[in-house]
């Protein structure tokens, strides 16, 4: 797999020999190495249970929350070993969006956007707050839809709006990387299309890593694609190349729908 790292020049994220196991015997992710290119959308594909979400959650060290999960290997963010950073700082630099929209139900739309600041105990001036809220909501094309109802609870929005609110919440800290874990799997086609368009826009300013079980989605919006199978990274390259001419037979079988 080492040649794959070389493929990516000056990566934002660099994953080296990463393995994750939920219990001693069974490994969920096995020795994955890959670089993630700045200002691009990288998709992680594979059948369910292949370890794609596990890999994604290793990047911002979400596994640290669960004592039974063991992670080995290194991840570098802008050349810095993430193991040396506090998880608090790391997660502030790497935003995350989850499968199901999860705005904080007890907070207003306004407070949801700046939840990161509130949670981190950072006090902002009122004007700064408003600036951040407006900027972040404009970034996710939600501002015009909610600007008159910022004090309403975030859970009043539609599913698609909620997911864009969650993306805005992740953007408010200006992270280097945004991780998305099947962000559209709970959304209808119209809302999905909106989120996809949004991600295409966002890659100007952010590096995006997205797990998806939807091959067509990966083909539509990603620049690079990884294919994982049984915990291993089977193939990694430019999306165009992979979809037209996969190298590994397992990738080909997956892309042609032989298994899912």
């Amino acid at each position: 797999m080492s040649e794959l790292i070389k493929q990516i020049s000056d990566p934002v994220l660099e994953i080296r020999d990463l393995s994750v196991s939920y219990n001693k015997d069974k490994s969920a992710v096995t020795a994955v190495s890959a670089g993630i290119k700045k200002n691009r959308v990288t998709a992680i594909m594979g059948p369910s249970g292949c370890g794609k979400s596990t890999l994604l959650r290793a990047i911002n060290r979400m596994h640290d929350l669960y004592p039974n999960v063991e992670t080995v290997g290194d991840i570098f963010l802008n050349g810095e070993d993430t193991a040396d950073m506090s998880t608090m700082m790391l997660r502030r630099k790497i935003g995350m969006v989850f499968q199901r929209p999860n705005p904080f139900p007890t907070m207003s739309i306004h407070d949801n956007v700046i939840a990161g600041y509130k949670l981190n105990g950072i006090r902002l001036q009122k004007s700064d707050k408003n600036d951040i809220v407006e900027k972040s909501l404009r970034d996710v094309a939600l501002w015009d839809e909610v600007k008159d109802s910022l004090i309403k609870k975030g859970t009043f929005l539609s599913g698609g709006q909620q997911q864009r609110l969650c993306i805005a919440r992740a953007l408010a800290f200006k992270p280097d990387v945004i991780l998305l874990d099947e962000p559209t799997s709970a959304l209808d086609p119209v809302a999905t299309k909106k989120v996809e368009e949004l991600l295409m826009q966002l890659k100007k300013d952010y590096t995006i890593v997205m797990v998806t079980h939807n091959m067509a989605q990966a083909a539509r919006i990603s620049d690079f694609s990884m294919f994982m199978y049984l915990g291993e990274l089977i193939e990694y390259g430019k999306t165009k190349d992979m979809f037209i001419k996969p190298i590994d037979t397992r990738t080909e079988e997956y892309l042609t729908g032989k298994f899912s």
Partner: peptide
């Protein structure tokens, strides 16, 4: 301002 408040000292205090 955010950088200033989120410096090492603040982080340590939170830990």
């Amino acid at each position: 301002f955010a950088k200033q408040i989120s410096g090492e000292g603040a982080l340590k205090r939170r830990v």
